[in-house]
Design a protein around this nucleic acid. Structure first.
Lengths: 123, 123
DNA sequence: TTAATGTTTAACCTATTGGTTAATTAACCG
DNA sequence: CGGTTAATTAACCAATAGGTTAAACATTAA
């Protein structure tokens, strides 16, 4: 899992990490502050790891401030993810506007002894 | 990983599965057809598993047609994911419109012997 | 009925994930 | 300096993910 998009989605696939991100929309925060709501559920190192995942995905930026590590949200990866999803929502609609495509498919099926895929009658 | 959102993001966190989804935006297809572009890389059962993940996330719907399993994309989970992301993009902006919040924070720091989090001077 | 095609299941393997506790590093403060 | 607070690293563990091959199941076609 090396590509940007996979890392983004993977980072978002955990409720703790998502909660941290939402928390960060209300303003930057350091690790202990961020961890506070989760310390009944898990340890501080667990949070450190989650933050590392978010950081690797580019979803947060950490900056040193004295002993503290200030975390800030970075929404750019979200934009790319959204973009991909949008592309994915442009679904092919079976309509007579697309008669061309339909006829081409039909043509193909002749040579395909009974195979009814691609674009069969819906259900 | 039981919640809907986690399942959606997790399903999208794999390039093979994303490619399958994109493929399905061009129209429904059966398993062997879907698998075709990947069979140099992986086996058919691998694809079956990927499809199961997508199905569990509600991103595809499979319907029996004779021996075939016709897969159709369902973009509803994408909508929910996008909605979450949008919420996450509404970032708190440090501005003088929010002077109230700022002053409250400042008030708190008095009792907090030198702790500079929450909303410190940005960098 | 048998053969062929499409798809899934079973059993297994390895790497990764998400968590733990204990120890370590880093910076500040009295 | 020595203690306290902030955060990470190390070493470990169990569960899950993603892949494999071989076998099984389902439906059609001959």
């Amino acid at each position: 899992m090396n590509d940007k998009l996979s890392m983004t989605f993977s980072a978002l696939a955990d409720p703790t990490r998502r909660a941290i991100l939402v928390r960060l929309t209300k303003g930057e925060s350091n690790v202990t502050e961020l961890a506070k709501p989760f310390l009944k559920k898990m340890s501080l190192p667990a949070i450190t790891k989650h933050l590392k995942v978010l950081e690797n995905a580019g979803l947060i930026v950490k900056t040193k401030e004295a002993q503290y590590r200030s975390c800030e949200i970075n929404t750019k990866p979200l934009d790319e993810a959204t973009l991909w999803m949008d592309q994915c929502r442009e679904v092919w609609v079976e309509s007579f506007d697309r008669l061309d495509d339909y006829l081409k498919k039909l043509q193909n099926t002749k040579t395909n002894r009974g195979k009814k895929y691609g674009k069969g009658k819906k259900r």
